Computed example of a mutant assay.
Amino acid sequence: MILLISDLHLQEERPDITRAFLDFLGGHARSAEALYILGDFFEAWIGDDAMTPFQSSICAALRALSDGGTKIFLMHGNRDFLIGSTFCKKAGCTLLADPSVVRLNGEPVLLMHGDSLCTLDEGYMRLRRVLRNPLTLFILRHLPLATRRKLARKLRNESRAQTRMKASDIVDVTPEEVLQVMRQHGVSTLIHGHTHRPAVHALQVGDRPARRIVLGDWDAQGWALQVDEQGFKLSPFEFPAQSA
């Protein structure tokens, strides 16, 4: 069994999501051969050198799962693209390039965070190119912590304000880009997150039937995609109740 999740946006201000994730790690995920986390795992990440006690506790929980035999793969999202090798080593996980092709049930499957598919959002795409430039990443990682925290808050606030003002089709994936990237990688299945619009979309890539599976965000409930001998199953689940 393989599990795929994304868009947990873990933060101290949402202990309900943290409880749900720790419950997921201690339960369902323990039976998995591998766990793929496709970006925006944390609400914000300003550098491995700025790990908070809260983030360290999440790191330790991942390590416990990894030590138990489950392989963990982590992909950058638009909120946590500064996660680096130090965190991954401590957490016992492997950093996965975006995009990556992996084999699930013997089939080549394209995994992405999903933000690079939203090509109609031209302003965001310009910002993404700047922020993901190796020179920019080097500069960001060497800024003083206080400056990084201030910049992260500014970018987060601006992103929320702009998303509210944009038409829904602009902040969703561009259909033509989806087909182009699937043809480029020679796959019939694409799995991504980012848009917070969980669904399984039937597609046609050339003369082949295809599908795009969108993982859900963890907010009012959790979402996980399970891949096993029965196929691909995307399901929501309720958060565990808070202990009295």
Rank of each mutant, 00 (worst) to 15 (best):
T18G: 04
R128F: 10
R160H: 13
L22A: 06
V101H: 05
H185Q: 13
A152E: 12
R160T: 14
G114I: 09
L117D: 01
D7T: 01
S235E: 07
K154P: 01
D169M: 13
Y124C: 05
D67T: 07
F81I: 07
N105Y: 04
L151I: 12
L82T: 10
D98M: 06
A61K: 05
G114L: 15
H76S: 00
G231Y: 06
G106H: 10
D219V: 05
F21L: 05
I46V: 10
E13F: 09
L74N: 03
W223Y: 13
H142Q: 14
Q242G: 09
R129I: 05
L25H: 12
I213N: 08
E158P: 01
R183E: 12
S100Y: 05
E122W: 10
H28E: 11
L127I: 08
S85H: 15
P198D: 09
S66K: 06
V109D: 10
L143D: 10
F73M: 07
S56F: 03
T189G: 07
A161I: 03
L111E: 04
E33L: 12
A60L: 13
I37L: 15
G26E: 08
R183D: 11
F24T: 01
D228R: 01
T136N: 09
W45H: 01
L111R: 10
F138E: 03
R103Y: 15
L25Q: 01
D49E: 15
Q226C: 15
A210R: 11
C118K: 08
G216Q: 03
E12F: 00
L137H: 06
K150G: 04
L151E: 01
V214W: 07
L135G: 05
T94M: 14
A44G: 15
V227W: 11
I191D: 11
V178Q: 12
Q162H: 08
T195P: 01
M51V: 15
I46G: 02
S235A: 13
H192Y: 06
L3Y: 15
N133C: 09
V187A: 05
R153W: 14
E13M: 07
A64D: 11
S6G: 09
Y36T: 00
D7L: 03
L62W: 14
D49P: 01
A220M: 02
